[in-house]
């Protein structure tokens, strides 16, 4: 379950905003720690069906590293092809932020790969500053609580 060091270093060397959410990053970062935004790590991990160093996993890692606000979704911002992905897009658009999207319908390997990568079974999936935030239900919850807004503001500040 432990991801190789290369991922930890990739995280540390990417956009500076990663430090905002991972102040206690150590040399070796496990998948659980990486995808969790809180220090409590009492999760039962889902089984990974894909090795972390396949080309698809590396590609996803680089997408996540290169884009401060990244949404894996079905369809595009202009033409979301799923109600949940549409909700996710609308929430992000409400922050007036320049976010990137990846259409999983256009690439079957990414579609399955991102589920393995995040250990999360559904689409959409949001990453902010390299951290997995969650799917559309969690986005709605964090949008309503204001938590997502704070997270996006931090990402925005680092984008300039």
């Amino acid at each position: 379950m432990i991801r190789p060091i290369i991922f930890a270093t990739a995280l540390l060397s990417s956009a500076s905003c990663t430090t905002a959410f991972a102040p206690a990053a150590t040399a070796v970062t496990t998948q659980q720690q990486r995808t969790s935004s809180s220090p409590i790590t009492s999760l039962t991990p889902l089984k990974m069906s894909d090795s972390p160093d396949t080309p698809t996993q590396l590609k996803i890692q680089s997408l996540v590293d290169d884009n401060p606000v990244l949404l894996f979704m079905k369809g595009s911002k202009l033409f979301p092809q799923c109600g949940f992905s549409n909700t996710a897009c609308q929430i992000l658009q409400s922050y007036n932020i320049d976010f990137e999207t990846v259409d999983v319908l256009a690439d079957e390997q990414i579609r399955q790969g991102v589920k393995d990568f995040s250990q999360w079974p559904t689409i959409p999936q949001l990453y902010v500053c390299g951290e997995f935030v969650g799917g559309s239900d969690i986005m709605i919850e964090m949008y309503q609580s204001g938590e997502l807004g704070e997270m996006i503001e931090k990402a925005k500040a680092d984008m300039v």
């Binding site: 969790s36 935004s37 409590i40 039962t44 239900d137 919850e141």
Partner: peptide
């Protein structure tokens, strides 16, 4: 009560329903 963040609660449920939500 011990799963303070939404992502933890959702993961607990995804884990419980792993067979149902698998590809």
């Amino acid at each position: 009560k011990d799963a303070k963040t939404p992502i933890k609660r959702h993961r607990l449920i995804n884990e419980t329903l792993r067979e149902e939500v698998a590809a």
